[in-house]
Structure formats: structure tokens, C-alpha cells
Design a protein around this nucleic acid. Structure first.
Length: 103
DNA sequence: GAGGTGACCCAAG
DNA sequence: TCTTGGGCCACCT
């Protein structure tokens, strides 16, 4: 049998590219999709190789977007019609209850 | 081969 | 609802 994932990095990019527009997945979900629990490794790898993938479709389990990129991700969410939940302080969060993509 | 780092997760106060 | 502490896994030096 051929090895399922070519590389951890390729597997992550594969899952991220599999997320349809208007939907999002948590780092933990991406790690679980490739048979691993390394949610942190997903974020670390994405920070270096996610530049070629829709990284904004990957958020934390709390619904917060990646740090230092929440403003950039907001533009994509509004363009794709991703459901968001706004707080009183102007802080927004992705509505995982609706936007969470399940494999 | 071993240690440190990180776009994280979960539980408790 | 928000904050703090500890733990897990993969990559880099």
C-alpha cells in the first residue's frame, strides 16, 4: 500500500484546499483529517506554506482567525459570505456552528 | 540524537 | 464571558 499522505505539509495543504468557500475548519479538525492531533504543527506549517492556500478558511476552535491576520481574513470572509459573529468591542468571530466544514 | 519553538486545544477559576 | 496554566505534535537548528 502506498503511504497515504506524501508529507505532513502536503496533507495539510490538501485538506485546506478541500475546504469550499463560505466554510471554515479548525486547526484541530485539519490535524484530525490527516490522522494527527498536532494542531500547533498545522498552524506552524501553514504560516510558512499556507501562503499558497486559503489560510483564512482555517481558524481556531474558538472561531478566532490567525493572529496578526484577522483584519486580512475579514476581507475574505465578507467576500465569500462566511457567517460571522460580532462582539460589542468590534471583535468578530467565525460562526463555527454554521460555517464549520465537516469531512 | 536532543532541545526549543509555535497562525493551538482543553479544563478550571 | 474572559483569563491562566499545562499538554500534545511536527519542524528547525
Amino acid at each position: 500500500m502506498r503511504k497515504p499522505p506524501e508529507d505532513f505539509i502536503s496533507a495539510v495543504l490538501e485538506v485546506v484546499g478541500s475546504i469550499p468557500p463560505g466554510r471554515v475548519m479548525a486547526y484541530s479538525d485539519v490535524a484530525a483529517a490527516i490522522g494527527s492531533r498536532a494542531a500547533r504543527a498545522v498552524g506552524t506549517v501553514m504560516s510558512h506554506y499556507g501562503s499558497d492556500q486559503p489560510w483564512w478558511r482555517v481558524v481556531r476552535a474558538s472561531g478566532h482567525p490567525p493572529l496578526d491576520h484577522e483584519t486580512r481574513a475579514l476581507e475574505y470572509y465578507r467576500a465569500e459570505g462566511t457567517p460571522l459573529k460580532w462582539s460589542r468591542d468590534g471583535v468578530y468571530r467565525v460562526d463555527l456552528a454554521v460555517a464549520r466544514h465537516r469531512p
